[in-house]
Design a protein around this nucleic acid. Structure first.
Ligand SMILES: [Mn+2]
Ligand SMILES: [Mn+2]
Ligand SMILES: [Mn+2]
Ligand SMILES: [Mn+2]
Lengths: 225, 225
DNA sequence: AGGCAAATTTAGCCCTATCTAACCCTAAAT
DNA sequence: ATTTAGGGTTAGATAGGGCTAAATTTGCCT
């Protein structure tokens, strides 16, 4: 099946927006994610449905079919392998990789994918700590760790994943020592979702508004593998 | 100026087909190079002319403007840097690189280009011996060496460039020791353009039909830098 | 000069991906 | 049971890239 890069982006967006297993993803959510208008999304959803890549209930949203999920996982694998390769071998900073990978993910061959994976020794996570789907594209188990906003005050935790895409925010976080693998002390969790924490070894502390904190997942040292 | 990847391919094709400096490239030549029909070429040429990327005399062909040439050189630089990187760092064989580079050339950022060039230490030629345009995109001087078909029988020469794109032919040539840098003895130049030669150190000889030989450029050892 | 074959352009159509404007559904509130 | 706000879908337009079939132009040959 020949899919355009745009179709691949839609499937990837649906994959990433689909939280629960039968939770339907809404037109407006896709429109916002991909920065297009909702009629544009509707017409694309019709095409994806024609190709059996999604199940659709008009007016109520879509879910990926198994085939659609496989395509999405393929694109995500490309994306995350590229992010890892760019940081490991081409001197990219983790704040720069997303944009580059977001274009290249649609244009590399299976051969390229395999060589990159080999050069990285089959990595399991990308520079943000997000899991890289395996070559067989089986749906990976759910993410490791929990959102940092669910921590209690005073908890000491290990950062597992920083799934933000904004270069400015990522640079800011790195400047404050907040990267995967770092040990963190949670100082305050405000009722409106703001989290204040301090990286182990640094005196400075960071305050993270809810929409930033949402993308940070952590685990208790005990749970840390 | 936002150019589509298809437009970039047209400009690159015109660049590579334009032998002399004011030699006009014909519709049919572009059509054949890009594997599209001539009406398709005509309509694209109109668009490129609108954007001042080519000069066009209806029914008589086109030439690149300075601006168009710069775009073409940019694409060629991307292409050849990618070919070099894929062979040097990702274990590609020179017979495989063309297809991959031909897609990726349109999708890498200037940042990616710079990192790849740095990783390769600013290379001057790609794996086929073709010159990589410099970062400032000044038109490079003409190719080194001369077509092997212009050799005399008995000449001993150094292979400078093997500008073929066909993977099968490239594998065949490599199997017979015919690669850039190799010393070659020209055994026979037949009147219909077929060249027979033997790589230094190998007993076997290769016979190259005219359309293969045309892409191979060589220099006398004296001229060799 | 006239005629003809080959190359090129024009005309008219298709498909994708996007938009805006207009219309329609759903679900929650009255 | 209505209303209504907030999506979602339909309709119609535009722009890019492509094709086939039908004109045109060129350039060469007689
Ligand atoms: Mn993408
Ligand atoms: Mn793949
Ligand atoms: Mn190309
Ligand atoms: Mn460039």
């Amino acid at each position: 099946m020949m899919l355009s890069d745009v179709m691949e982006d839609y499937l990837k967006a649906i994959y990433q927006l689909q939280r629960g297993d039968d939770e339907r993803v809404k037109t407006s959510a896709i429109a916002e994610e991909l920065d297009v208008t909702s009629p544009t999304v509707t017409s694309m959803l019709e095409k994806l449905e024609d190709r059996s890549l999604i199940d659709r209930e008009k007016y109520r949203g879509v879910t990926l079919t198994e085939e659609g999920e496989t395509v999405a996982l393929e694109v995500v694998r490309h994306h995350r392998l590229l992010e890892a390769y760019l940081t490991e071998h081409l001197d990219y900073d983790w704040s720069e990789v997303h944009e580059e990978a977001d274009r290249l993910e649609h244009h590399i061959s299976e051969n390229f994918e395999a060589r990159v994976a080999a050069a990285l020794d089959e990595p399991e996570v990308d520079p943000h700590g997000s899991p890289i789907p395996s070559p067989d594209l089986e749906p990976p188990n759910t993410a490791v760790g929990n959102p940092i906003s669910e921590c209690g005050e005073g908890d000491t935790v290990i950062v597992k994943e920083v799934a933000d895409h904004d270069p400015e925010i990522l640079s800011y976080l790195a400047d404050h020592g907040l990267e995967p693998g770092v040990e963190l002390e949670v100082l305050e969790v405000a009722p409106f979702g703001m989290v204040t924490a301090s990286a182990r070894g640094s005196d400075t502390q960071v305050s993270l508004p809810e929409d930033v904190a949402r993308h940070i997942r952590v685990a208790l040292p005990a749970e840390a593998e």
